[in-house]
Amino acid sequence: MRNWSNNYWLLALGLPVDPFLPSQSLSGGQLTRLALHQLFQPDYGYLILDEPGNHLDQQGKRWLIEQMRRFDGGILVISHDRDILRCVDCILELNSLGVRHYGGAYDVYAEQRANELASQERSIDHVKTQIKQMRQTMQKNREKAQQRAVQGKQVARSGSQAKILLNNMKQDAERAGGARESNQNRQLAQVQDQLSKLNKQHEMLKQQSLFLGKAEKHASRILDVIEVRLLFIQRENDITFSIHFGDKVRLSGANSSGKSTLLKAIAGRLSPLQGHIQVRTGLCYLDQHFTLLKNDKSAQENLEFFCSHLTEKDRRTLLAGIGLRRERAEQAVATLSGGEKMKVAMLAISHQPGNILLLLDEPDNHYWRKERRRRTEKRRQKADF
């Protein structure tokens, strides 16, 4: 009876029906499901889940969301996956400014955040206008003071008024002008400080920009996979396909279907049981754990290693676009979050010189999924309007 129960749960989780199978032989998605299943079974009052959607296929994602909805206790989930965030009661956003509470799930959060961003941009524009007007007023006052000084010298040369009276008038005007400019400088400094704080808040709210390298599309074929059969992949037919330069191909399949194994074979890290793989260009493989990055080096140093043809200014501009500015760009990669490591890795591999075939294994782990699709759709809607 116990064996039947084990087999039932293994089947329900999409795992091999062998309770003695070593866990290291499972895929990343299968391991994630198994770990989550163990958490949801005991009578816990509260769960803390750190990026639970990583490595899960669509079926696994639906299973996770259903388990979260059925769970009677509380859940604190750290996630950038919008499907998961749409089934929560509220969102807490943590950044360098502190913790901000947003009532409701992701769509409510996104609307509130967009309204905050628009309000901040209006405030920034208003403060910039204030600063411009204050500087114009200060310049006009200086010009008037200079004109009065010239007029005073002309009166002194004419001898129409007593010299002692003119000196008193000059001193009074200089004191009044100095006090006025000091007051104006103090007010200007306050408004500039307000602008600085608004800009810092705006940096936290605005979307980051991940600038990927571009290349012209050619007709040449850069990859041939011919009648390949791989270890651990059970298929009726051998794998055969080709990729041309400029093609963007999505490799889909359920957890444990062999997606990562195929990428490793193309990258030359595994040998096929039969068949032939030919790569006709440079190749860069980004695995699920971003092991191409050197953890003891900074983001700036990693980018310099992979993209030495870029200037330091260009590298810092790219890193600033993903939120790594100034001293943060000099931090060791080991101290960065999973999402930050992914962005640094994407910058590094996409800006290498020459024609490169990129192999990306779960590149959206730790990241806002569908962000690029959402931005494209938003631009299309504006164009249609």
Rank of each mutant, 00 (worst) to 15 (best):
Q331E: 09
L360V: 05
N255I: 06
E116M: 08
C90A: 15
L212V: 06
R328I: 01
N141L: 15
T240L: 07
R280N: 10
A173G: 05
I356L: 04
R316K: 12
G253Q: 02
E377S: 11
R175I: 14
V249T: 11
R325V: 13
R135I: 07
H276D: 11
V333C: 04
I164T: 13
G53I: 00
N6Y: 15
G321N: 01
L47T: 00
R113I: 05
I266C: 04
G74C: 06
K313L: 10
F232K: 14
L251I: 08
C87D: 11
E174A: 15
E236G: 10
R380S: 10
G282Y: 08
G152Y: 03
H244Q: 15
I84H: 02
Y46M: 14
F40K: 05
Q146T: 12
L39H: 04
I164L: 13
Y44D: 03
R380A: 14
F40R: 01
A145W: 05
G339I: 00
V191E: 07
E377A: 15
F305W: 12
K163Q: 13
T240W: 02
V228S: 02
K197V: 12
L270G: 03
R374M: 13
P42R: 11
L293D: 00
A329C: 08
L357Q: 05
Q133K: 15
K259S: 04
F290K: 06
A118H: 11
S256E: 07
K297H: 13
S27R: 02
F305R: 13
H101F: 13
H244P: 04
S256N: 13
D287M: 02
N199C: 14
G104L: 06
A320I: 00
W4V: 15
A110P: 02
L56H: 03
T129Q: 15
L273R: 07
L64P: 02
L36G: 05
A179H: 13
L292M: 08
Q120N: 15
L31F: 01
H126R: 12
V228I: 06
G178Y: 11
L319N: 01
R62F: 11
L273E: 11
N54L: 02
G282A: 14
L359C: 04
L13V: 06
Q288N: 06
G103H: 12
A320F: 03
V150K: 12
G73M: 07
M138R: 07
H366V: 01
W9E: 09
R175V: 14
R374V: 10
N355L: 11
K61Y: 03
L251Y: 01
